[in-house]
Lab assay of single mutants.
Amino acid sequence: PDFTLHWNGITIHFKGIDEEQFRHLRELLDRGVSLEELEELAKELIK
Rank of each mutant, 00 (worst) to 15 (best):
P1E: 11
P1G: 14
P1C: 13
P1D: 10
P1H: 14
P1V: 15
D2N: 12
D2A: 11
D2L: 13
D2H: 13
D2E: 12
F3Y: 11
F3V: 02
F3A: 01
T4A: 06
T4C: 06
T4F: 13
L5S: 00
L5K: 00
L5D: 00
L5N: 00
H6E: 10
H6N: 10
H6M: 12
N8V: 02
N8P: 01
N8L: 05
N8C: 05
G9V: 01
I10S: 06
I10K: 12
I10P: 00
I10R: 14
I12A: 02
I12F: 10
H13C: 12
H13E: 10
H13K: 09
H13Y: 13
H13G: 04
H13I: 15
F14A: 01
F14M: 04
F14S: 00
K15T: 12
G16R: 04
G16L: 06
G16H: 09
I17N: 02
D18V: 04
D18F: 05
D18M: 05
D18Q: 07
D18S: 15
D18C: 09
E19L: 12
E19P: 11
E19M: 10
E19W: 12
E19A: 14
E20V: 14
E20L: 13
E20S: 13
E20N: 13
Q21R: 05
Q21L: 14
F22L: 05
F22G: 04
F22W: 12
F22N: 00
R23W: 14
R23Y: 13
R23V: 07
R23G: 04
R23F: 12
H24V: 12
H24C: 13
H24E: 04
L25N: 00
L25R: 00
L25F: 11
L25H: 00
L25Q: 00
R26M: 07
R26I: 07
R26N: 03
R26T: 06
R26G: 03
R26Y: 08
R26D: 01
E27G: 13
L28H: 06
L28G: 02
L28W: 12
L29Q: 03
L29N: 02
L29W: 11
D30F: 15
R31M: 12
R31E: 07
R31T: 09
G32K: 03
G32I: 10
G32A: 07
V33N: 03
V33K: 07
V33A: 13
V33E: 03
V33R: 05
S34Q: 04
S34N: 06
S34D: 06
S34G: 09
S34P: 10
S34L: 06
S34H: 05
L35I: 12
L35R: 05
L35D: 02
E36G: 09
E36W: 13
E37R: 12
E37F: 07
E37M: 10
L38H: 00
L38M: 05
E39D: 06
E40Y: 09
L41E: 03
L41P: 00
L41M: 08
L41V: 11
A42M: 11
A42Q: 03
A42N: 02
A42R: 05
K43I: 10
K43Q: 11
K43T: 08
K43E: 11
K43R: 12
E44Q: 10
E44R: 09
L45S: 06
L45E: 02
I46D: 10
K47L: 14
K47I: 15
K47N: 14
